[in-house]
């Protein structure tokens, strides 16, 4: 089991209703169904992944997130989850708004561009960083909105989004004293539970 999914799972109340944006092959939803008895749906655009969800018995809806979530009613889910997707969408801010419209709470994970190796590669090497959690080259990356933990928290403050819980981990999804002291420098993956302030 991917450790980040385990962390998310611990944040989620048993029996809740979940919408997973960009659900991939349905791993998270299947895990939450089995561990936390959640019900819900994944939204996915890739047909091969949709078939994997169906094989796993996970509800999946073929949809382009960029088109917004207008098919979903306000506060119709306990949680709207987006794992490592926010940095790959065009309308980042709009999608955040939509998440917290449709869900009572939002759960977001993203690769931290403030990670020291990224900073080092750009500052000293002078090239776009390629690290384990951001493994693509600048010319083939799906990640079009790279941001740091500080950037994200600034945006949350500006938009009146409450950070209910935060966890910053390394690539192996472990935490440490160093990570707790310098999350934006040492953290590779950030996980947030968000609400409306």
């Amino acid at each position: 089991m991917r450790a980040d999914l385990e962390i998310i799972s611990e944040w989620i109340r048993i029996g809740s209703r979940v919408l997973d944006l960009g659900c991939g092959d349905g791993t998270l939803l299947a895990y939450l169904r089995d561990q936390r008895a959640v019900s819900g749906y994944g939204l996915e655009i890739n047909e091969v992944k949709i078939i994997k969800c169906i094989q796993a018995g996970v509800n999946v809806i073929h949809m382009d997130l960029e088109a917004g979530l207008s098919d979903f009613e306000d506060r119709s889910f306990d949680y709207v989850i987006m794992t490592q997707t926010l940095q790959a969408v065009q309308h980042t801010e709009k999608l955040l708004d939509e998440m917290l419209r449709v869900g009572r709470e939002g759960i977001v994970t993203f690769p931290n561009f403030g990670y020291w190796r990224c900073r080092f590669q750009l500052a000293v090497g002078g090239y776009m960083p390629v690290v384990k959690i951001l493994p693509h080259e600048w010319y083939n990356t799906p990640n079009i909105h790279l941001f740091t933990i500080r950037d994200f928290e600034t945006l949350c403050r500006r938009k009146g989004i409450a950070i209910l819980q935060r966890m910053v981990v390394d690539y192996a999804h472990r935490s440490s004293l160093g990570l707790r002291l310098f999350p934006n420098l040492l953290g590779e993956l950030a996980l947030y539970r968000l609400g409306r302030a």
Binding site: R17, S39, Y41, E47, I50, C53, I54, V58, N59, V60, I61, H62, M63, D71, F72, E73, S76
Partner: peptide
């Protein structure tokens, strides 16, 4: 998608593909 929306609003299990 109208069908899917109604099923989601009703909390039913549904998968949809285009």
């Amino acid at each position: 998608r109208e069908i899917v929306k109604a099923l989601v609003d009703a909390g039913r299990d549904v998968s949809y593909i285009e």
